[in-house]
């Protein structure tokens, strides 16, 4: 079932002349982990903000085209309904907290208090989320004393506990170290397994390749590619136009250029190992692609 459909959408911020999204159309299915990918400034965050409803209500600007969510026009969905049904987590770990709670447990409960969930149910739900995301070890810590990685996990927990049908997650790990990144993506993977619809705004192609079911690849405000992770990231256009793609995919294309006829271009490390393993002997003998790896 289709949960999000964007049709010929164009948008410009109030402070700019130029449209930063031009005729964008795509649809996202229920239960899908859909990545909005592309290089810096191509409009990923803007799309996330439009789906979440922060554009135009919060940022203003001019918008053309249509957006349908849950089969309704986005305009017909009230702000309250959006807040409840579309979760939102963004980059900065340090601004995403209520700022008024003294333990992680209560921080996670904050959203449920705001929508009037009964006390007993709040406790049950928060306990479940803490267990699910494995954050017991710091559940009674002060939210403002946590490191960025922990804070981002708390931010995710705080939204997940509200049980939104769609989660828009905008570069959740851009300020985290590799360990923090891995822990956050473990959570995202878990959500994906539970068939939650996730819109992941992300420019790190390695992460996108590993986790996304569906990728919408933007370039300068238009949709360049739209399809499965393999279709998109192993697409020659990216290589030819020198756009961002996973390192191993680039390596694959370079290997082909050097005459190594691999049957397909890998997009993840594991995939690359499998594909190149077949040429194991060749590499040992000092084959062409040795220098690139």
């Amino acid at each position: 079932m289709e949960v999000i459909r964007m049709n010929n959408l164009s948008y410009r911020y109030p402070t700019t002349e130029e449209y930063c999204l031009k005729n964008v159309s795509f649809s996202i299915q229920e239960g899908e982990l859909c990545a909005i990918a592309g290089s810096n400034g191509c409009g990923k965050t803007t799309i996330g903000n439009i789906i979440r409803g922060l554009i135009p209500s919060f940022h203003g600007g001019e918008i053309e085209g249509t957006l349908e969510i849950f089969g309704k026009s986005s305009k017909e969905i009230s702000a309250d309904e959006k807040a409840k049904r579309i979760g939102f987590v963004f980059q900065n770990p340090f601004t995403q907290n209520s700022g008024i709670k003294e333990t992680v447990f209560e921080e996670i409960a904050f959203g449920l208090e705001n929508i009037g969930v009964g006390r007993e149910e709040i406790i049950t739900r928060v306990m479940d989320i803490i267990e699910m995301l494995k954050i017991e070890s710091f559940m009674y810590k002060h939210p403002l004393e946590l490191s960025g990685g922990y804070r981002q996990r708390v931010a995710l927990a705080s939204i997940i506990v509200q049980n939104p049908e769609i989660m828009v997650i905008d570069e959740p790990t851009s300020q985290l170290d590799p360990k923090g990144t891995e822990e956050v993506f473990e959570i995202i993977k878990l959500l994906n397994r539970q068939k939650k619809t996730i819109v992941l705004v992300e420019h790190k192609m390695e992460l996108v390749a590993e986790y996304a079911d569906h990728i919408i690849y933007l370039n300068e405000g238009t949709v360049l590619l739209d399809g499965t992770a393999e279709d998109v990231l192993a697409n020659e256009i990216l290589y030819k136009k020198n756009l961002e793609m996973p390192q191993v995919a680039r390596l694959g294309f370079q290997a082909r250029e050097k005459g190594l006829m691999i049957e397909k271009v890998p997009i993840t490390m594991d995939g690359a190992v499998k594909i190149f393993a077949k040429y194991g002997k060749c590499v040992k003998d000092g084959g062409g692609s040795h220098g690139e790896s």
Binding site: F58, A79, A83, F90, A155
Partner: peptide, 9 residues
């Protein structure tokens, strides 16, 4: 962030 936590509901 507060909006996302339904603070304005």
């Amino acid at each position: 962030a507060l909006e996302a936590r339904c603070f304005n509901c």
